[in-house]
Amino acid sequence: MLSLSAAAAAPALVGAGHQPLHWESLGLSPIALDLGFFAIKWYSLAYLAGIMLGYFHLGRMIRQPGAPLAQRHADDLFFYATLGIILGGRLGYALFYAPELLSDPARLVRLWEGGMSFHGGLIGTVLAIAWVSWRGGLNFVRTCDYIAVCVPPGLFFGRCANFVNGELWGRVTDSKLPWVMVFPGAGPLPRHPSQLYEALLEGIVLGLVLFLLFWRTRARWRPGLLVGLFTLGYALARFTVEFYREPDAQLLDFAMRSGLSMGQWLTLPMMAIGLGFVARALIRQPLAVTIQPTGQPAGSTVVS
């Protein structure tokens, strides 16, 4: 499939005289800071920025009336969710994309060599939320609602880091769009910068939708609505972008045989789960929350 698309694209590009961008000409490097004896990569900073920004935003959210958790629970979630993201992301990558890593523990733990799965990280995060909710007597679904709003910035930073690394590039295209690009190690033909498509849809668009729903509407009083919309929105964004993203080399045959990439197959159950949560949230009555107005004497309440 790759060779056929490349062969079809080449004549069109030559005939049109279209000059695509070259990733190398952007002057990007996977290394953010090189101290000689130690190097910090943008990918690591992306994870750190996403987690820290999520923790900061969660702290603001739980200060609003009716929050399902307190600051001590947010602190616990920060620790366990970080473990869930890293361990789940790596194990998920090995399970879904590179099974050979499971038989080679020495390679499995080399996180600095890359290879993380969003779906694995999602499972790890859900397990972390379940653990903190069970131990703290929290409402699991409402806690997931609050965490879901904090996730998109991390997705945005992660996809931007993929682009800076020059990895996970898009499919070969004969499009004359000014942003098609030749990536190192991907051959001489232009490709979609699918990393940026994902950053836009999964990070910015989905993040704005959830942010506005939380802060400008009463969505947080409907348990499961925000996490359902996040799950459904991410699945739809990922499913769409996968049509422009080159499948992992080791899974190219799988994509050709099944008609969909591994990423697309993994989003199908997410769509079903997200729709289920949204339908459940909209069918049920919203929560009635008693709120003490600011500056009012004790006992003065309104029901929201």
Score class of each variant (00 low, 15 high):
I40K: 05
G154R: 09
L2A: 13
H119M: 12
W265Q: 12
T301I: 12
A106G: 04
A298S: 14
L210Q: 00
Y43W: 05
Y55K: 07
R218K: 09
L13G: 00
V180Q: 02
G84Q: 00
Y55C: 10
Y80A: 07
G263W: 08
C160I: 15
Y43L: 01
F140L: 14
W112G: 02
Y97F: 15
V289I: 15
F156C: 12
L252Q: 15
L236H: 09
N165F: 02
S103R: 12
W112H: 09
L226I: 10
A199V: 07
G66M: 04
E113F: 08
I51M: 15
Y197I: 08
I204N: 00
S258P: 08
P247W: 11
R135D: 12
R63Q: 14
L21K: 08
G137E: 11
L2D: 09
T240H: 01
Q264V: 11
V182T: 01
S304I: 15
G203N: 07
A6I: 14
L102R: 08
F214D: 00
A199R: 02
D76P: 00
R191E: 00
P190K: 00
P286N: 07
L101F: 03
D104C: 05
Y47W: 15
V241F: 07
Q195V: 05
A281Y: 03
G124F: 11
L282E: 03
A148C: 05
A130M: 12
Y93A: 09
I283E: 08
L200G: 12
I62V: 14
K176C: 07
P223D: 01
K176F: 13
M181I: 15
M262N: 10
R142D: 01
P65V: 11
P223F: 01
F254W: 13
L287N: 09
Y146D: 04
V164I: 15
E202M: 03
I283N: 08
L229R: 07
M271T: 05
Q71D: 10
G84V: 01
G54L: 03
L53D: 04
R245K: 15
E167P: 02
P11S: 13
L268C: 09
I204D: 02
S304Q: 15
S117W: 10
L275D: 01
G170F: 03
L252P: 01
L95W: 08
L236M: 14
V302K: 11
R191A: 00
S25W: 03
Q19A: 03
A39E: 08
G88I: 11
T82M: 09
D174H: 12
V164A: 02
F211V: 07
S300D: 11
L196M: 06
S133Q: 06
F239P: 08
L87Y: 07
